[in-house]
């Protein structure tokens, strides 16, 4: 069955067609990064307006690139949350309208479940039980899955999300937006051993905390500017040390979860799963298979929404035309 996925939760307008939840027929993303870079982050009102302009052409292109027409589509899946209310509304209203117009079943998808499902778009198929680390601009969740669509929250951030920390530290170091790629680029020429930044281990908890790390970077930059200390450190060194501190905590806690729960597989998901050091350390330091989606399925996209929507559809779930957005929707 072909599912049309629609995703507008933040700053990407995306539509995709996926067959049986696993084979991507098309995956179209209109990125707003250039529009928002000037502001150093997503501007909600600008995002909503851009989504309105882009949504219909993007859906048309997704169908065209899949070489399919409306009669071939079996269901429409749309992100209902979490995300920016104004942005989510554009996708949900487009999906409801198209479902009504073409008399198609509608499925509401949690954006985070979409990120997890991105791992089903590649081979081999993940095996249960597994632990999935979802790290993005809005989330840092460590999830245990014993079966499809079954999620148990092991830990989550207590303050800033990992991706948010990347964005904020990139701002402190004046490296530009989005912060993830900017930090990774800067870190490549830096020496992480020249600065040790604190890690928030939080005892035995699987929770994360990145707010103190952000503040620590701020203090280092301030004392360097005042000529008090760290005057020989470059921005590249600080970026490298920051990146290591984040990845160290993410990988160490994920590895501990694999040992405690005797799991067969680790999945990385979300925009921060595109980070090369996270991928490398996860592969090197976690025993057993570690899988992550290719870059285009890590950042926000609609193929992952179509995949998750297919699994929900198979489980018998349907949304009706009263479907509303849920900006604070949680996975578990």
């Amino acid at each position: 069955m072909h599912v049309l996925g629609i995703e507008t939760s933040c700053d990407e307008t995306a539509a995709a067609v996926v067959s049986d939840g696993r084979r991507v027929r098309s995956n179209v993303v209109a990125s707003q990064i250039d529009v928002h870079a000037a502001f150093g982050g997503v501007v909600p009102e600008v995002a909503s307006r851009q989504h309105v302009l882009a949504i219909i052409p993007i859906v048309r292109r997704a169908l065209a690139e899949a070489s399919l027409g409306w009669p071939d589509i079996g269901a429409i899946a749309v992100t209902a949350g979490p995300g920016l209310a104004g942005s989510l509304l554009v996708g949900v209203n487009a999906a409801k309208t198209l479902a009504f117009a073409f008399d198609l079943p509608l499925v509401a998808v949690n954006h985070l479940e979409g990120h997890v499902a991105a791992n089903w778009l590649v081979e081999p198929e993940p095996e249960f039980p597994l632990v999935c680390l979802i790290v993005s601009g809005g989330h840092s969740d460590l999830i245990l899955m014993t079966a499809p669509l079954t999620y148990r929250l092991l830990g989550r951030t207590r303050d800033d999300a990992a991706g948010e920390a990347f964005d904020k530290v990139a701002r402190i170091l004046e490296l530009g937006y989005p912060g993830g790629p900017a930090i990774q680029r800067a870190a490549a020429s830096g020496d992480p051993a020249r600065l040790h930044l604190p890690r928030a281990w939080l005892g035995d908890s699987y929770d994360f905390s990145f707010s103190g790390l952000k503040t620590a970077v701020l203090r280092v930059v301030e004392s360097r500017a005042a000529g008090e200390a760290y005057t020989d450190l470059t921005n590249a060194d600080i970026a490298a040390s920051f990146q290591e501190a984040v990845v160290d905590v993410l990988v160490t806690k994920t590895r501990r979860a694999t040992e405690e729960f005797g799991i067969r597989q680790v999945l990385l998901a979300g925009g921060v799963a595109a980070n090369a050091l996270l991928r490398q350390w996860a592969k090197q330091r976690i025993p057993g298979p570690v899988q992550y989606p290719p870059l285009q399925y890590c950042t926000d996209n609609a193929a992952m929404i179509a995949a998750a929507g297919y699994f929900r559809f198979q489980a018998g779930e349907r949304a009706d035309l009263s479907l509303d957005v849920a900006p604070n929707l949680a996975l578990v």
Binding site: G138, H139, R156
Partner: peptide, 13 residues
């Protein structure tokens, strides 16, 4: 809670 930074969604409830 949990009370986390609302930077992503602008508003937590």
């Amino acid at each position: 809670g949990p009370v986390t930074s609302p930077s992503f969604t602008l508003a937590n409830e």
